[in-house]
């Protein structure tokens, strides 16, 4: 029997992957047929930073907040939520990685371990 190519890695069970369309690449995913895309940030408790948790589509900011509450904080995961229009985020490109982050690489003297201190010195 010839077996269709299947993978169980898709979580809820084996589904064929061979010959399945993977859609079309869209350069502006936030702007096509769907509602705008919002990136969601959650502060899990007081004293911590907001952290990125994912995204969602919503027609406006109010709905984005309400949907973010229902999607990302069903189990009291947050005390504060931010939603940010995805196209408002400016990101560094991984292609720039070397040159962009290079200036930090050769400045070991910015770290406390760079300095030689006599072993008998305390509290330093």
């Amino acid at each position: 029997m010839s077996t269709p190519d299947l993978t169980a890695a898709g979580g809820h069970g084996a589904v064929p992957v061979e010959g399945v369309p993977a859609g079309h690449r869209s350069e502006t995913p936030a702007s096509r047929t769907d509602w705008p895309l919002w990136e969601v940030f959650v502060r899990s408790r007081r004293g911590l930073n907001h952290q990125h948790v994912g995204s969602l589509h919503a027609p406006d900011a109010t709905m984005a907040l309400r949907n973010a509450r229902d999607v990302y904080t069903r189990r009291s995961e947050g005390v504060s939520l931010w939603v940010v229009p995805a196209d408002a985020i400016v990101a560094s490109s991984p292609d720039e990685k070397d040159s962009f982050f290079d200036p930090a690489a050769d400045k070991a003297y910015r770290h406390p371990t760079f300095y030689e201190i006599p072993p008998e010195v305390q509290h330093l």
Partner: peptide, 14 residues
């Protein structure tokens, strides 16, 4: 769907 969209595909199309 949110994770899939990071690969440059629209949820509506999926």
């Amino acid at each position: 769907y949110s994770a899939a969209e990071t690969l440059g595909i629209d949820r509506a199309e999926l």
